[in-house]
Simulated scan of single mutants.
Amino acid sequence: MLHQTMVPAPLAVVMLEAGDPPNPSVGAHRLVWWLLEQRDLLASANRVALLSGLGVDRLERVVLGEIEPEDDAAQRIAAATGGAVLPEDWSRRSQRPWAHAPAFRARPRPGSVQ
């Protein structure tokens, strides 16, 4: 069973905090915006936490920039988000603040040849 206690409040705090918080990693930035686009943010966050193997607490720390996901967890996050967040995104700082959507990146359609 997925955690029903995870509240995306820390994500909202980071994005809406007074003053401009430091720019996140591209991975954290893309993950937050991907979650916000989902029909059920809470279920999606819990699903990513479960599928990545990080769990809710570590995923939250990843989003807050306290830690970076290990390579295998970054690969699983990429799979869980359908490629919206790529493993290489975690090692780069975003040039956009939290409140601005990440730059558009075309994603391959399922079943397409790359």
Rank of each mutant, 00 (worst) to 15 (best):
L59E: 02
A74W: 04
P108L: 10
E88V: 03
L86D: 00
R96I: 05
M6K: 07
E60D: 08
L41R: 11
G111I: 00
G53M: 11
L86M: 05
A12C: 11
A12H: 15
R96N: 02
E68F: 06
P69Q: 09
V48Q: 06
S44F: 05
E60Q: 02
P87W: 06
E60H: 07
D71P: 02
R92H: 12
V7N: 15
G27C: 02
V63F: 09
D40Y: 13
F104G: 11
G83D: 01
R105F: 13
P21T: 00
D57A: 12
A18F: 10
E66C: 01
E70K: 15
V62Q: 00
L2I: 15
V85W: 07
V48I: 01
I67E: 13
V7A: 15
W98S: 01
W90E: 04
A45G: 02
W90P: 13
L86Q: 05
L35K: 12
L11I: 15
S25Q: 08
E68C: 00
P110K: 15
W98V: 06
L35Q: 08
V7K: 15
P8A: 14
L86V: 04
A84H: 08
A79R: 02
I77G: 01
S52N: 03
Q38C: 03
A18G: 08
T5I: 08
G65I: 07
P87S: 10
Q95H: 13
R61G: 00
G65A: 15
P8G: 08
L51A: 03
L2S: 13
A80M: 10
V63N: 08
S112P: 12
L54D: 01
E66S: 07
I67W: 01
A9H: 04
E17A: 15
E68L: 05
F104C: 04
L51C: 02
H3E: 12
L59T: 01
A101F: 06
H3V: 11
G82E: 03
P69F: 07
A43V: 07
L11S: 04
V13D: 09
S91A: 14
A78T: 10
R30F: 04
R105G: 14
V13S: 04
Q38Y: 06
A84N: 07
Q38H: 05
V62W: 07
T5N: 14
P87Q: 09
G83T: 03
W34C: 04
L36G: 13
A106E: 05
S52W: 03
L51H: 00
L16D: 14
Q38I: 02
Q38K: 12
R93T: 09
E88Y: 01
R93E: 10
H100Q: 14
V32T: 12
T81E: 10
A12M: 12
L59R: 03
R96Q: 04
F104H: 12
R92N: 09
G19T: 05
E88D: 04
N23V: 13
P108E: 11
A45C: 08
Q4T: 12
R109F: 14
R105K: 13
L31R: 09
M15T: 08
D89W: 06
V26C: 07
D57V: 07
